[in-house]
Write a protein that binds this DNA or RNA. Structure first.
Length: 888
RNA sequence: GGGUAGUUAGCUCAGCGGAAGAGCACUCGCCUCACACGCGAGCGGUCGCAGGUUCAAAUCCUGCACUACCCACCA
């Protein structure tokens, strides 16, 4: 088998992503003999395209899934997309705008047709991209929040909640986006710091006895004021409570009232109250039974105000009101003021709080149950630090405004009884799947459906049950087997918007949590640590990265940077390093496979005969242990690093190099013996690595397995590896350390003396500790090969070779006779530096050893270690000094 | 205002009670028969600041500073 010298990612990736789909490698059915491991994908917006956030999130899910598959679980990962409510409708509205049309020009029906055709056109792009990423999704189960099955679930959930009395309709103060023309829930409002002004306005008393000063950031709302509130304990104002004020401009009369939320120290201590357009004032108004005057409509224009302001936009009205107040002498002063302003999370338009008739969901009981599930660790957070804010949010939850005045979404399944002309009768509304035939209240037969659609997050909240067809059959096998799902992998930015609601609905409708674990991944940032955004132009397209570096490189770079729950920065350098790692794996495998072909069949079981064999098997088991535990704890970054370090440093740099003594020898038996271990370690490492880098590992595995009778894709194999922790004190570990120490010391010396690797030099090893001689002598060849030594003479109290360089390592003084090769002065200099370093060590260790309390209170092993360090340094200095004397 | 996380080599980040680590960058030497997407060797850090606990602190505790994110009824 001829392998490319450089790993050709594209070729391999195309082959495997196709194979996994054609062979349905990742499809799953309930199987009572196996434990399920289930993930449902956070459904991306149908019209979306893959960005780095998706790449990270889905890579992590794929890793977790593939790992559990290889641990023997019956794994299922359900794909799907979300219709995306306002976000998607906004995109199509923008397209219409370019054509010079609005949705109203088309009308609801035609507009929805347009929406669906847009969906057909662009939908599922992202799913195709996930295939490219290598995601092991069960494609036959692909769901969409607005397909028939999911829509049934939404209707069913609504009707159940409605019949339970938890859904109600009412006119309340809501967050209104004038651009989107819809109400929003509390969490759909994003607050942004904005530089504004604080206007101080004089509110004169009706009796002409003076005025009270109020401060506001929104002077135009004074047209809707129905009170001025002060703190009950504010002595400045206590006499004024109950007094009447004559509002400037409108001359309407309002009262001064008291309310505890007013802070004495803020502003002037007197607050103008506009109940119909401010959440805070709404609360004050309810407590004090104030009148509501609506002065802003759903388009953000002034209504119910003096003629000259009517129809003005809010900001225009603000300007006009301020000018008039100033002209009338009511404006005391204007200050610059920085405060936060609510914005629509979809279009960033300033939110207008206003009174509106909406549907609300009473979430009191549901959130209590969700809090309980979190507090009792029924669902566990990874990382755990998210639990606290999550619980706090749930505990302070207000009823959820679930109706939206847009067209793209699930229409609210509520029907109103109407007369023949279409006027609503006073009969109670009916929640039903279909238009009712007869009104149970009045026997009427005419109905109209509610015009609104549901918040897109309402259907998202049902996702873990709707993908398993809860909507049509609550008792189906899939739902029973795969629910609760094993883990939800998502970003913390939708913890409240989505995760909390899935938990609430899961508990409500299934009586059980929707997932055991919540694994929250961080945000991918650019090189400067900035969030990636189109406006900043710093977006890195994962598909470009795949093109340039390969999918496995992308996946590895993301997973090694993805410390659980923390944000990460990525740049080309990360991807380059990962691509290089892929190539390293490829070439290590190529070396093994090339040699394998020369020897034919080998033993599948490793049979260690060499110190390096024992050592690498030790290290391998230790690595396998750590990697598997890290996968289980969602510490994907740790698994990545562990694998990288093992494969590159331990396996390639040390073990393969050592193994060449056998693999490159003519002794077939020796070759086979070495190869059996090389193949064993390689295969195990590939298995552990394959969740992260599925393409390259699949390809190499297939080549390694090509003569096997029982051929399987690596993704279908079970990981069954030894997982012993390594013992640093074991003979193999200790001896290996000595060998490495000696080799590195000689290499360093050569490098510093500038001796070309082509020059073989001889060495004399003079033992300082008898114990190690035999072990080292046994591994003489290892030293010779890796340190490029010609011959080694082991001696005791030997005659010092003339003019040799000296290294003290592993219990030896090592003489390298370098007559004519080295600069004596340079060697003297080098030795002087070594002495200086050793002296520092002596200083540090002796300070410890002279410390009485250290000797008395530190554990014996520590004291021993310190003694050893001290002794080693002493010997080193002694030996170097001796050698210095002999250097001419 | 409250909460959470972070502050370690030029950059990105590990380490979280017993001698400061990795990758990238940089310097030097190597096209050594798996790999120049490579090999070998180096340079580089009083681990944000100030206290405390401990024989021992980057690591635990308490303040402080700065950064990021989240939450809040900031008139």
């Amino acid at each position: 088998m001829e392998m490319d010298k450089v790993y050709a990612a594209k070729k391999v990736e195309e082959k495997w992503s196709k194979l996994w789909i054609e062979n349905k490698t990742f499809s799953a059915k309930p199987d009572k003999n196996k434990k399920p491991f289930t993930i449902v994908i956070p459904p991306p917006n149908v019209t979306g395209v893959l960005h780095m956030g998706h790449a990270l999130n889905n890579t992590l899910q794929d890793i977790v899934l593939r790992f559990h598959k290889m641990m023997g679980f019956n794994t299922l990962w359900v794909p799907g997309t979300d219709h995306g409510g306002i976000a998607t409708q906004t995109i199509v509205e923008k397209i219409l705008k370019k054509e010079g049309k609005t949705k109203f020009d088309l009308g609801r029906e035609k507009f929805l047709e347009r929406m669906w055709s847009w969906r057909e056109e662009t939908g599922d792009t992202i799913l195709e991209q996930l295939k490219k990423l290598g995601c092991g999704l069960d494609w036959d189960r692909t769901a969409f929040t607005m397909d028939e099955e999911r829509s049934k679930a939404v209707q069913k959930a609504f009707i159940k909640l409605f019949d339970k009395g938890l859904i109600y309709r009412g006119k309340r103060l809501v967050n209104w986006c004038p651009r989107c023309g819809t109400a929003l829930s509390d969490i759909e409002v994003e607050y942004e710091a904005e530089k504004g002004k604080l206007w101080h306005i004089k509110y004169p008393f009706s009796d002409g006895s003076g005025f009270v000063l109020v401060a506001t950031t929104r002077p135009e709302t004074m047209l809707g004021d129905t009170a001025v509130a002060v703190n009950p304990d504010d002595e400045r104002y206590s006499k004024l409570i109950g007094k009447t004020i004559k509002l400037p401009i409108t001359n309407r009369e309002i009262k001064i009232i008291k309310d505890f939320v007013v802070e004495k120290n803020f502003g002037t201590g007197a607050v103008k109250v506009t109940p119909a357009h401010d959440a805070n004032d709404d609360a004050i108004a309810k407590r004090n039974k104030l009148q509501y005057i609506e002065i802003i409509d759903t388009k953000g224009r002034m209504i119910n105000v003096p003629k000259k302001y009517e129809g003005l936009k809010v900001l225009e009205a603000r300007k006009a009101v301020v000018e008039d107040l100033e002209a009338l002498g009511f404006l005391e002063k204007v200050e610059d003021y920085s405060h936060s302003v609510g914005k629509c999370y979809r279009c960033m338009t300033t939110i207008e709080p206003l009174m509106s008739e909406q549907w609300f969901l009473n979430v009191g009981e549901m959130s209590k149950k969700a809090v309980e599930a979190a507090k009792t660790e029924k669902t566990i957070f990874f990382p755990p630090s998210w639990k606290k804010p999550y619980v706090m949010w749930l505990e302070n939850l207000r009823d959820w405004c679930i109706s939206r005045q847009i067209w793209w979404g699930h229409r609210i399944p509520v029907f109103y009884c109407v007369d023949e002309k279409g006027n609503k009768n006073s009969c109670p509304p009916i929640a039903a799947y279909k238009k009712p035939n007869v009104c149970p209240a009045c026997g009427g037969t005419h109905f109209v459906q509610d015009e609104d659609v549901l918040d897109t997050w309402f259907s998202s909240a049902l996702w873990p049950i709707s993908v398993f067809n809860w909507g049509t059959d609550e008792n189906n096998e899939d739902l029973k087997y795969f629910y609760p799902t094993s883990v939800l992998v998502t970003g913390h930015e939708i913890l409240y918007l989505w995760v909390a609601r899935m938990v609430q609905f899961g508990l409500e409708f299934m009586g059980d949590i929707p997932f055991w674990h919540i694994f929250l991944n961080g945000i991918v940032r650019d090189k400067q640590g900035k969030k990636m955004s189109k406006t900043l132009g710093n977006v890195v397209d994962p598909l470009d990265i795949i093109d340039k570096f390969g999918t496995d490189a992308l996946r590895f770079a993301l997973s090694s940077a993805a410390s659980c729950g923390r944000d990460m920065q990525v740049s080309d350098e990360n991807f380059l390093a990962s691509r290089n790692f892929a190539n390293k794996i490829w070439n290590a495998s190529r070396f093994i496979i090339m040699n394998l072909e020369a020897v034919g069949e080998i033993d599948a079981k490793p049979n260690p005969q060499d110190l390096s064999d024992e050592w690498i098997l030790d290290e391998f088991a230790d690595m396998a242990n750590k990697v598997q535990n890290n996968y289980k704890n969602y510490d994907i970054d740790k698994s990545s690093r562990e694998l990288y370090d093992f494969l590159w440093t331990k396996f390639c740099d040390w073990y393969i190099e050592f193994s060449k003594i056998r693999t490159l020898s003519d002794d077939i038996a020796k070759k086979k013996q070495a190869l059996s271990i090389l193949v064993y370690i390689l295969k195990g490492t590939l298995q552990l690595l394959s969740p992260i880098m599925p393409f390259i590992t699949s390809e190499i595995w297939e080549i390694l397995d090509k003569d096997s009778k029982d051929k399987k894709m690596i993704a279908q194999t079970i990981i069954d590896l030894p997982t012993a922790k390594k013992d640093e004190q074991s003979a193999a570990q200790k001896q290996m350390k000595v060998l490495q120490d000696i080799i590195v010391c000689i290499r360093t010396l050569r490098s510093e003396m500038n001796i070309s690797p082509a020059v073989k030099i001889d060495a004399v090893f003079n033992s300082l500790e008898n114990a190690t001689v035999e072990d080292v002598q046994k591994n003489e060849n290892h030293i010779k090969t890796l340190a490029k030594i010609g011959s080694i003479k082991f001696a005791k109290n030997t005659k010092r070779p003339k003019n040799s360089a000296l290294a003290v390592a592993g219990g030896f003084e090592i003489f390298l006779p370098l007559e004519g090769l080295i600069d004596i002065d340079k060697e003297k200099e080098r030795l002087a530096k070594e002495i200086a370093a050793a002296n520092l060590e002596i200083e540090r260790t002796s300070a410890k050893l002279n410390d009485d309390s250290f000797i008395r209170r530190a554990p014996e092993s520590e004291v021993e270690k310190m003694h050893k360090r001290y002794d080693d340094a002493r010997i080193k200095i002694k030996k170097i000094n001796e050698n210095l004397k002999f250097l001419k």
